[in-house]
């Protein structure tokens, strides 16, 4: 891995990040959105760990005879971020399950349509103004 030219790694990581990001914002299925968030975040973790790496360095556990170590700080940060990521996934999935129970679907379009129907029956006409863009 270290033999690769320095910047190439980063470019691949960028591609991975954007693949995840695309899944989050372009897909209508809520579960798939969460998978996308997971991919996006995992790729950001790779970015951090890549910058902590040191050519010829060892894992940052003090060992006799070793003087050059990779930086421990990005590792610590990413340990935290991994846990935060899975916590978010858990809460998101719990929400998705409740949405499935309330709407009978986890497809954004279906949910949106049934909300619109609710509004119509409530106010007589769709509340069009507050839906500009509507993610």
């Amino acid at each position: 891995m270290n033999a690769l030219p320095g910047i190439f790694n980063y470019l691949v990581v960028v591609f991975l990040m954007m693949a995840g990001f695309y899944v989050v914002i372009a897909q209508g299925n809520l579960i798939k959105k969460l998978v996308g968030l997971g991919l996006f975040q995992a790729s950001v973790f790779i970015l951090y760990i890549t910058m902590g790496n040191l050519a010829g360095g060892a894992a940052p556990i003090v060992t006799e005879g070793v003087t050059v170590y990779s930086s421990p700080l990005p590792h610590v940060l990413i340990l935290t971020a991994i846990v935060v990521g899975v916590a978010t996934t858990a809460v998101g999935l719990a929400l998705a399950v409740r949405i499935q129970e309330a709407y009978g679907s986890v497809e954004e379009e279906v949910i949106h349509a049934s909300d619109l129907r609710d509004d119509e029956s409530l106010f007589g006409e769709p509340a069009a103004c507050d839906r500009e863009g509507g993610q």
């Binding site: 969460l34 991994i82 846990v83 999935l93 719990a94 399950v97």
Partner: peptide, 27 residues
């Protein structure tokens, strides 16, 4: 490979393990 043993351990346990199991139960 990038010398981050602790992170690798956690990613394998949390990312690959817990997340996947959670997503499957969500599914």
């Amino acid at each position: 490979d990038l010398d981050a043993v602790d992170v690798a351990f956690t990613e394998a346990a949390v990312g690959a393990g817990v997340s996947t199991v959670l997503m499957l139960s969500g599914l």
